[in-house]
Design a protein around this nucleic acid. Structure first.
Length: 275
DNA sequence: CAAACTCCCTGTTAGC
DNA sequence: TGCTAACAGGGAGTTT
């Protein structure tokens, strides 16, 4: 499940391999993967364009393209997507959805088992990433900003951190990890978070992401391990002892998402419902 | 308007 | 053991 750290790793991987390369042809094997175009229109539009740069915004990977005009090809890996650069003559893999052939004998393979991943070809970045919130690893993201974001909202901590319009790039795993580090219960109403809690949460988010990036992503035991592996402290560790207090980690559902936390370290808000 | 729910997908796992 | 049903989940779209 790629989140910001895994996406960042992919961006760095691509930067070393596809910048200044030209797309000579493409093939779309699952039409819905390309959200903005029909397969034919897409293939016609990307043929002949050169990849000027690879950027990341939240969990989106952006290829800046230069052809007859400037365009962007954004890729969202969602649950199971991955991008690899391999020899153009390599066989098509089982779950390859889109292949972009480059002018150096290589090709970009967008492989996506669950078909949730998407590509968006557009004229300006705003069309795809315009509604995203602050980049959590940018200088703009501060404890003060986090505190400000929490004011006047009626959602709980977990829901806010999952909301890409608030902070861009966190997913279910790193949200659970960050809340545990900050000792904040997932159901805590964000309007009740104190300034000091926001300081702790800010530090938890940035340190968790930086740590995971340094390790090139997270190992989920699904065989899709990258270079290193970040070992979750609470995620998918229900019924295991908490690394901090020894309490038993609990799994519940918040926002329809599996949610892992330590009931001892992360005290429940007073009038909480089931957790 | 903001919050909550539905749906898209397939590999894996729980349960009978 | 073999089968089916439940589960996992990001975000677009829809409903409340």
């Amino acid at each position: 499940m790629p989140e910001l750290p895994e996406v960042e790793s992919t961006v760095r991987y691509l930067q070393e391999r596809v910048v200044d390369r030209t797309i000579v042809s493409s093939a779309v094997y699952w039409a819905r993967t390309v959200a903005t175009h029909t397969p034919i229109a897409f293939s016609g539009s990307v043929a002949g364009v050169t990849i000027e740069a690879v950027i990341r915004r939240g969990k989106f990977i952006g290829l800046k393209l230069r052809g007859s005009s400037e365009q962007y090809l954004f890729v969202h890996l969602r649950m199971s997507g991955s991008l690899d650069v391999i020899a153009a003559q390599s066989e098509i893999a089982t779950h390859d959805r889109v292949i972009l052939e480059l002018n150096n004998g290589k090709s970009i393979r967008f492989n996506d088992t669950r078909k949730f991943g998407r590509m968006y070809l557009c004229d300006s970045p705003e069309q795809v990433v315009g509604n995203l919130g602050v980049e959590p690893l940018s200088d703009d993201f501060s404890p003060e900003l986090l505190y400000a974001i929490t004011r006047g909202k009626k959602t709980c901590a977990k829901a806010l951190l999952l909301d890409q319009r608030a902070i861009a790039g966190l997913g279910n795993i790193y949200v659970d990890e960050s809340l545990w580090k900050a000792k904040i219960h997932p159901l805590t109403p964000v309007a009740k978070l104190t300034q000091s809690q926001c300081v702790a949460l800010h530090a938890a988010i940035t340190s968790t992401l930086e740590q995971a990036i340094a390790l090139s992503g997270t190992d989920f035991g699904d065989g899709v391990v990258q270079d290193g592996m970040y070992s979750p402290l609470v995620y998918a560790r229900d019924d295991e002892p908490c690394n901090r207090c020894g309490g038993s980690i609990r799994k519940s559902r918040v926002q329809q998402r599996g949610t892992h936390y330590c009931p001892q370290c992360q005290r429940a808000p007073r009038k909480s419902r089931r957790a």
